[in-house]
Design a protein around this nucleic acid. Structure first.
Ligand SMILES: [Mn+2]
Ligand SMILES: [Mn+2]
Ligand SMILES: [Zn+2]
Ligand SMILES: [Zn+2]
Lengths: 156, 156
DNA sequence: ACGGAATTAGGAATAATTCCTATCTAGGAG
DNA sequence: CTCCTAGATAGGAATTATTCCTAATTCCGT
């Protein structure tokens, strides 16, 4: 799905298409490229300001909240002190593997869907809205580096 | 496992047993009772201060960090603006179902262990440390209440 | 009991997020 | 096209969670 399609959807949903919102959306689409690092509000703000200086953090947060309510954006937590956001386009559902040292993440094409089914059976009257599955640990690069540090320490 | 056993383990691990740490540990054990709501640092601070006034937030955070490194405490995120903590005693591994409205949580006896295995295969060089599986949505009570509000709105 | 490394209190600093309010504007009605 | 207004924004202040700093204290092995 492309930016244009999403804009159409938003219009259909009765969302006013301000330039600010479009820029935030664009930033979210940009974040989809490459290694897919969900972005913090601050990061999105910086991207947006390149094209549209003067946007306020408040607007970014408000817009992300709006998009989240529409199911267009998902929030993820990487335990690095801020919330992160990424587009939740249909068919692209995934989760993350996060390095607790460098903070980089990798997409995981696994989803504990069976657990969700069991949860729904376990609590039939609970209305499930979203779920998080995130794996934390240390990436190969960071493990390598800490091994180096260890060597240096020992050799001294 | 009881408080005494954990204290023994801590001593074995070379952790200095200050009264502050013992109080934080006690607070965490208290949190285990009842409906198991993982506690925020602030909540723990309040509990600790009842017995031991004058503890600083810093100490609570530092202690939680220490316990986390030891694997004694797990951190969970309920999307309510603060980190939450709970004891991670052996055999008691579980996850949570969280209401986005009232913030209350319920324990889930399901763990996406199979996903973790696949993740480990997918990234053999990544050192998995921890994982999060949390289901968000609206609890029966909150759904009921919002239905009431809806009725009132319509009837006016 | 002593010494020293680890720990703490308290207050300042930081960083993320929200609130407030005067001003602006997208988009529907005419 | 112009007008109108509900909804959106900027900017700065306020809030809240968390960390940093440092002098003073304390656990615990010897
Ligand atoms: Mn992603
Ligand atoms: Mn729990
Ligand atoms: Zn890494
Ligand atoms: Zn609820």
């Amino acid at each position: 799905m492309l930016l244009q399609d999403v804009l159409k959807e938003l219009r259909k949903a009765g969302i006013r298409l301000t330039p600010q919102r479009q820029e935030v959306l664009q930033a979210l689409f940009d974040g989809l490229q490459g290694e897919c690092q969900p972005q913090s509000a601050e990061e999105i703000l910086q991207v947006v300001r390149k094209r549209y200086p003067g946007v306020s953090p408040d607007t970014v947060y408000r817009t992300l909240g709006t998009f989240k309510k529409l199911g267009l954006v998902r929030e993820v937590n990487f335990r690095d002190g801020c919330r992160r956001f990424e587009l939740a386009l249909q068919g692209g559902h995934h989760h993350h593997l996060v390095c607790l040292r460098c903070g980089r993440s990798r997409e995981l094409p696994f989803c504990p869907a069976d657990c969700l089914v069991r949860v729904q059976e376990y609590c039939p009257d609970f209305e499930i809205e979203d779920h998080a599955f995130t794996v934390f640990g240390y990436c190969p690069k960071c493990r390598e580096e800490s091994r180096d540090v260890f060597r240096e320490t020992v050799e001294v």
